Lab assay of single mutants.
Amino acid sequence: PEDLERKVRELQKNGVSPEQIEKILRRDGVDEREVQELVKKVS
Results as ranks from 00 to 15, higher is better:
10 E>F: 14
24 I>G: 01
9 R>M: 07
15 G>I: 00
6 R>K: 11
13 K>L: 11
14 N>T: 07
21 I>V: 03
41 K>Q: 08
23 K>A: 14
38 L>A: 07
6 R>I: 06
28 D>A: 15
28 D>E: 13
14 N>I: 10
31 D>E: 08
42 V>P: 04
16 V>T: 06
5 E>S: 07
10 E>S: 07
32 E>T: 04
18 P>S: 09
11 L>R: 00
3 D>A: 12
16 V>W: 13
18 P>A: 11
12 Q>H: 15
30 V>Q: 03
3 D>S: 11
31 D>A: 09
33 R>H: 09
29 G>K: 02
25 L>G: 00
1 P>R: 14
5 E>Q: 09
40 K>L: 08
18 P>T: 12
31 D>I: 04
41 K>L: 14
13 K>Q: 10
6 R>D: 07
30 V>K: 02
5 E>T: 07
1 P>K: 14
13 K>Y: 07
1 P>V: 12
28 D>C: 15
19 E>F: 05
15 G>L: 02
6 R>P: 02
10 E>Q: 12
34 E>P: 01
27 R>C: 12
7 K>Y: 14
14 N>Q: 13
5 E>D: 05
28 D>F: 14
6 R>S: 10
24 I>K: 02
40 K>E: 10
5 E>M: 13
13 K>M: 11
24 I>W: 05
10 E>V: 10
6 R>Q: 11
31 D>G: 09
31 D>L: 06
25 L>F: 02
39 V>Y: 04
18 P>I: 15
29 G>L: 03
32 E>A: 08
39 V>N: 02
36 Q>F: 05
33 R>A: 13
22 E>I: 15
39 V>S: 02
43 S>Y: 15
43 S>Q: 12
3 D>N: 10
24 I>D: 01
33 R>P: 04
36 Q>Y: 06
24 I>M: 11
29 G>N: 03
23 K>L: 12
15 G>D: 02
9 R>C: 15
37 E>W: 08
34 E>T: 15
8 V>Q: 00
22 E>R: 13
17 S>H: 06
22 E>D: 02
36 Q>M: 09
33 R>C: 10
28 D>M: 15
38 L>K: 01
20 Q>I: 09
37 E>H: 08
20 Q>Y: 04
22 E>W: 12
37 E>P: 01
12 Q>N: 07
13 K>C: 08
25 L>Y: 01
25 L>K: 00
23 K>Y: 10
1 P>T: 12
35 V>L: 14
42 V>H: 05
14 N>K: 13
43 S>F: 15
6 R>M: 11
7 K>S: 03
30 V>H: 12
40 K>M: 08
7 K>H: 05
35 V>P: 01
29 G>M: 03
31 D>T: 10
24 I>F: 04
30 V>L: 14
36 Q>S: 06
22 E>P: 02
2 E>Q: 12
12 Q>W: 15
37 E>M: 09
23 K>E: 14
30 V>R: 03
8 V>P: 00
15 G>V: 01
16 V>R: 06
13 K>E: 08
12 Q>K: 12
11 L>E: 00
39 V>P: 01
14 N>W: 11
39 V>M: 15
19 E>G: 07
7 K>M: 11
15 G>A: 02
20 Q>N: 09
25 L>A: 00
11 L>Q: 00
42 V>F: 11
3 D>V: 09
3 D>G: 09
9 R>A: 06
2 E>W: 12
33 R>I: 08
41 K>T: 06
12 Q>Y: 15
27 R>S: 10
12 Q>S: 13
20 Q>E: 14
18 P>L: 15
3 D>F: 11
34 E>C: 14
34 E>R: 15
9 R>K: 07
7 K>F: 13
34 E>G: 04
29 G>V: 02
41 K>N: 08
9 R>P: 00
21 I>G: 00
19 E>S: 11
39 V>W: 04
25 L>Q: 00
1 P>L: 13
32 E>W: 10
21 I>P: 00
2 E>D: 12
40 K>T: 09
28 D>I: 15
26 R>I: 13
18 P>R: 14
14 N>S: 11
8 V>S: 01
14 N>M: 14
26 R>T: 07
2 E>F: 13
25 L>E: 00
40 K>P: 03
13 K>S: 08
41 K>P: 04
1 P>A: 11
43 S>T: 13
32 E>Q: 06
12 Q>C: 14
38 L>N: 01
19 E>W: 08
25 L>D: 00
5 E>H: 09
6 R>N: 09
9 R>W: 08
40 K>D: 08
30 V>N: 03
31 D>H: 06
11 L>T: 00
5 E>V: 12
6 R>W: 11
23 K>R: 12
27 R>N: 10
29 G>W: 02
34 E>K: 14
4 L>W: 11
7 K>T: 05
7 K>R: 13
9 R>E: 03
40 K>A: 12
24 I>L: 10
33 R>V: 09
8 V>M: 03
40 K>S: 11
34 E>M: 15
37 E>R: 15
35 V>T: 03
17 S>L: 07
16 V>L: 14
39 V>D: 01
5 E>Y: 14
39 V>I: 15
32 E>R: 03
24 I>H: 02
3 D>C: 14
31 D>P: 13
3 D>E: 12
17 S>E: 04
37 E>T: 05
10 E>W: 15
26 R>G: 03
5 E>F: 12
25 L>T: 00
32 E>H: 04
12 Q>P: 00
41 K>S: 09
38 L>Q: 03
28 D>G: 09
12 Q>I: 15
19 E>N: 06
35 V>S: 02
5 E>N: 05
39 V>R: 03
35 V>A: 11
41 K>H: 08
40 K>F: 08
29 G>F: 02
18 P>V: 14
30 V>I: 11
35 V>Q: 01
3 D>R: 08
35 V>R: 02
43 S>V: 14
26 R>E: 03
20 Q>F: 05
38 L>E: 01
17 S>M: 04
6 R>T: 09
38 L>P: 01
23 K>F: 11
3 D>Y: 12
5 E>L: 15
10 E>N: 10
11 L>W: 13
38 L>G: 01
2 E>K: 12
30 V>Y: 15
